[in-house]
Each structure stands twice: as C-alpha cells, then as structure tokens.
Amino acid sequence: MHPSTVLLVAAKTVTLVCGAVLTTLTYRAYNRTRATAMRALWVGIGLVTAGALLAGSLHQILEFPVATSTAVESVFTAAGFAVLTYSLYTDQPSEE
C-alpha cells in the first residue's frame, strides 16, 4: 500500500472518530437545551462527518474514482459549513 494511501486512511479515520464524538455530544446538548443554534450545530457537524464517511465508502468499498468521492465529500462539507455558519447567527430560543 502506498504511504499516501495509509496517510489518507489514517486522516479519514481520525476525522470520522472525532466527528462522531462531536456529533454525539452536540446532539446530547441539543436534547438538553432544545436550542435552535445547537440543533444547527449538530446537523452541520453531522453533515461534515457523513460526507467523510460517504466519500471513503464510495472510494474504498464501491471503487468510485477519487475525484468522484472527493466531489461528494465536498458537497457534504459545503452544506455542513453552511449550516454551521447559520448556527452562529441563530440566537432565538426554540418555541416549545
């Protein structure tokens, strides 16, 4: 296996583990607070993490080309960062 492939797999593994932990923690915080901003934070981190998982799966399991799997990951990352940006501007408490 090429060293750059090992580095890529290691980096993606760290991204997935940290992303899963962050997603879980923000989901728990959202359940406690029911804050709209926390929900957006949870969804944004989840999208970035899901994009990394999906890209790796497409490339390693389904043998998609690197360019295609990277494009899919980029779409999820862009959507995740858009939601994360929204979470910073949302300060209204949820109505329940």
Rank of each mutant, 00 (worst) to 15 (best):
S74Y: 04
W42Q: 10
R32M: 11
G44Y: 07
E96W: 07
T24Q: 06
P3G: 09
Q92P: 00
L22Q: 04
R34I: 09
L88G: 03
V43M: 07
L54A: 12
G46H: 02
I61F: 03
Y89Q: 15
L7I: 11
M38W: 10
L88E: 01
L8D: 08
R28G: 01
T15E: 04
R39H: 11
T77C: 14
L25F: 08
T77H: 15
L54N: 11
T68A: 14
V17N: 03
Q92D: 01
M1Y: 12
L41I: 06
S74D: 08
T90S: 12
G80V: 11
H2E: 13
T49P: 08
I45S: 04
L62S: 08
M38F: 05
L54K: 09
V43C: 04
T36I: 08
G19S: 03
V75L: 15
L88H: 02
G44P: 01
S57K: 02
T5G: 05
V83G: 06
G46L: 06
G19D: 01
A29E: 13
G19V: 02
E63G: 01
A55I: 01
G51N: 07
A37D: 15
S69T: 00
V6N: 14
S74G: 11
Y30S: 14
A37P: 11
T36K: 13
N31S: 10
V75W: 05
S94Q: 12
T36L: 14
T49N: 08
T85N: 06
V9Q: 10
L62E: 07
L8W: 11
P93N: 10
T85W: 08
Q92C: 02
M1D: 15
E96Y: 11
P65V: 04
T85P: 07
V14N: 03
E73I: 01
T23L: 07
V9S: 09
A55N: 04
T5V: 13
L25W: 07
A29G: 03
S74I: 09
A79H: 05
Q60E: 04
S4T: 09
L25G: 04
F64C: 03
A71K: 10
T77S: 14
W42V: 10
S57P: 03
L53C: 09
S4H: 13
V17S: 00
A55Y: 02
T15F: 00
Y89L: 15
G56P: 13
P93G: 00
L58V: 15
E96A: 07
T49L: 02
S69R: 00
V48H: 01
P3S: 12
D91I: 00
Y86D: 00
Y30P: 12
V48E: 14
F81M: 07
R39K: 12
W42S: 13
D91N: 05
T26A: 09
S4Q: 10
E73W: 05
G51H: 13
V75I: 09
A40T: 11
N31M: 15
G19H: 07
L84F: 10
A35Y: 14
G51S: 12
F81D: 01
S74H: 08
Y27S: 15
R32D: 06
A82I: 10
Y89I: 15
